[in-house]
Every structure is written in structure tokens, then in C-alpha cells.
Design a protein around this nucleic acid. Structure first.
Lengths: 204, 204
DNA sequence: CAAATTCTGGACATCATGTACAGAAACTAC
DNA sequence: GTAGTTTCTGTACATGATGTCCAGAATTTG
């Protein structure tokens, strides 16, 4: 994706990292909306003008950081096998909950009332796409299915909501149990549904 | 709840309605975040100072309006029967999608990147509670189940996400079909799950 | 070292917020 | 209708955030 020409000035790299870390820290401390660009610059120990040299606003900083984190995560997990397990034999749901636990303070805010609407929407779209790609890899004949897309968003929203509930309730169960729960609630999924009824009622 | 002493000055009622309508209109026009209190006052043809006489900020106005709308909806639908249908014999999912369709322009914004995080979170909690109350009414023995709560949030999140997808894709199917889809994806739900496995793996 | 790039810190115009207040307007009760 | 109360208005003000600009200092690259 970001084919950086390998020529990134060290100052630039440093500044961006400082700003990203500062944003993450501040989100946890005071919620996304209550952060100003000045706050971020201060926390990063950087001039406010420098911030605008790199990002249009804090939202752009958030989204770029978001992309970095998820690209790295996807990279680390590697391709998903045909049995829907990772290379290490872990269900993808478990990965999701483990990742959440790792950054719990961050997600606890971002998925709460103090988070950002755009973030959650993008997360859902991102998840839905990853899920869909995974399913279509194994069942290529589903590629064009519009209902399949709807089902993926259904699953993605369900997962995010369950994660939110988990965080809101001090994570009363381990990640593996939560993954098990979500997995069992989604049993069937697109495949089960399409097998059961390949068309919606109004489609005959 | 709001035991208004029936002594609401007509001016107050009028102002509040004007402000509420103005907010709704502006949300559709330019997204929630881009609205200022001045905008709302202007659109409502009311002095800005008057706004602050009634609400702390636009968020308070939004939430009060939200409560009004959903209380009215719940009132109109009436109690849910033991077969999970409304008094008119409609599945609750259908009500949800019909209501969405009625206020489509509003939800299209509020459930998008231009919406409000707090709104969606509250909506999920509201839905989860309504669902849980409905289930517990029929199956009182589930009352204390912590997993039951998780499942309700799972379902609520799934419903909201499916609605979001529906709106984002120009509502390609009628409300009834969408309700059918969601219903079939949730088959089993808490009941099915608890029957299948009353305890999480780690609980023995 | 020299040239190029980035960072700094201060300034500036603009705009939104929240509060205050005095007078005008509208409402309620009688 | 009038009196008394409450609400609305218009304006003003202090505060703080935004986005842009610039000249000089600092750092990096070759």
C-alpha cells in the first residue's frame, strides 16, 4: 500500500511516531472528542505548526494510525487457512478478542460514548471486508452475492458489539470464551443461511 | 419518567419543538459534527441564548429527542406477546426496519461516519435492554444470566450493523426481507445457545 | 561542509462556546 | 382586561480552538 520511497527523513518518522503515540495516550486519558490539536502537540512535545505539517486534523492522524495497526496485525496473522484457522491454528475470533485485550484501554474508550463514530463505522467495514474475502476464498461461487455482504456486516457489527460489551463489563471472561460465544452465535452464517434459503422471500 | 407538572408554558413547548426539528433537519443536511449551536438556533428561528436556556449543548438536545422518539415508538407498538410478535402480529425486527425506513435520511447520517458515537452506543444499549426484557418476560429463569446480556448486545449490534448496511446500499430489499434475514441469522439466540451449552468452556 | 528539508515559536484572523443582562414579548391566573 | 410572572431576544464579552503564515533555528542527507 503505502510505498514509502524508503527516503523518509528521520525527523519526519520521529515526529509522526510521537504524534501517534500522543494521540493514543490522550484518547485513553480524556476521550477522543475532548482532545485538541494543541493537546496532541504538547503531549508529543512538538510545535503545533508541526502537526499541521503532517496531518490535516486529528481525524487524519487517527485514521492513518488505524491503518498502520490493522495492516500490521493482518501481516502478523498471515493468510487464513481453508478451515478458517490462522497459520498457528487459532480461530480468527480469538485473534480479535486477544487483540482487543492487548489494547483494552484504547478500545474501551473508542468503542464507548467517548469514542469516534467514524472509527467504529470504518472498523465494521474493515472487518466485513476481511470476513468476506476469507469466505469467498473458500467459496468462490459466493463472490457476487449481495446478501453475503449484508451477512458480513451483520457479523462484523455483532462482533464489535460483543467486544464493546466485554470491555464495558471489565472483561469477565477470557478472550477464548468470548470467541467461542461469538462463533456459536454465528453458527451457519452465510453458508448456513444460503443453504437454508438461497433467496429472500420477495425474490421468490 | 418525566413527570412534567402539566404546566409547561406554551412558549417552552414551542421552542423545544422548534429546536428539535431544526437539529434533525441539520443532521440530515450536514452531519452531526458540523452543526453549531448557532446553526440550530438560526434554523429554529430562535435566539442562541434561548437554546442555552433549555439545553446544555447539542448533545443534550439530541439525547432528549432520542428518548422522546423511542418512548413514543415503544408506546405505539405496545407490549410484545409471548410469541415475540407485536399486538398487530408483526415480528419486532420488522418494526425496527420499518421505523428505520420512516426516518431513513436521519439514520443514514447518524449511523454513518458523520453520525455521533454516543448515539450509536446508546442505541445499542437501548435495544439490548428491550430485547432482554422481552426474553426474560417469557423465560424468567434467565434473568440473572450474564451471558444472556452479552448475547443481547451481540444481537443489538448485529441489527444496527445490518440496518447501517441497508441504508448505505440504498435499501435494496424491503423491510420485511431484512427482518427475515436478521431473524434467520439469529436463529437460536440465547435460548438456542444456552440449550446447546449452558456454560462457557472455562466455566466447566 | 553545503544544500535541502524540517521544526519552531510566535502572530494573526476567524469562529464557536458559554455566560450575562436589560428590555421586549408572551403567557397565566385572576 | 389587567397584573404579575416567565420566557425570549439581542447584544456583549471572555475564552479557547482552528488553520495558516513566516523567518530563523536545527537537523539531516549527500
Amino acid at each position: 500500500m503505502t510505498e514509502t520511497p524508503r527516503k523518509v527523513d528521520r525527523r519526519v518518522q520521529r515526529t509522526r511516531t510521537l504524534l501517534r503515540d500522543a494521540l493514543m495516550k490522550l484518547i485513553v486519558e480524556r476521550g477522543y472528542e475532548n482532545i485538541t490539536v494543541q493537546d496532541i502537540a504538547d503531549a508529543a512535545d512538538v510545535a503545533r505548526a508541526t502537526f499541521y505539517l503532517h496531518y490535516k486534523d486529528k481525524e487524519e492522524l487517527l485514521f492513518q494510525s488505524m491503518e498502520e495497526v490493522y495492516d500490521a496485525l493482518l501481516e502478523r496473522v498471515g493468510p487464513v487457512r481453508d478451515d478458517y484457522l490462522t497459520q498457528e491454528g487459532l480461530p480468527v475470533d480469538v485473534i480479535a478478542f486477544q487483540h482487543t485485550a492487548e489494547y483494552a484501554p484504547f478500545y474501551r474508550v473508542m468503542l464507548s460514548e467517548r469514542g469516534a463514530a467514524a472509527y467504529v463505522v470504518r472498523l465494521r467495514h474493515y472487518l466485513a471486508k476481511v470476513l468476506w474475502d476469507t469466505v469467498c476464498q473458500k467459496e468462490p461461487h459466493l463472490k457476487g452475492s449481495i446478501i453475503g455482504q449484508a451477512v458480513m456486516h451483520h457479523e462484523a457489527g455483532a462482533l464489535i458489539a460483543t467486544i464493546s460489551w466485554w470491555l464495558e463489563n471489565e472483561m469477565p471472561f477470557p478472550a477464548e470464551d468470548m470467541a467461542w460465544l461469538v462463533h456459536n452465535l454465528s453458527e451457519g452464517g452465510v453458508l448456513g443461511l444460503i443453504e437454508k434459503a438461497p433467496k429472500l422471500p420477495s425474490e421468490g
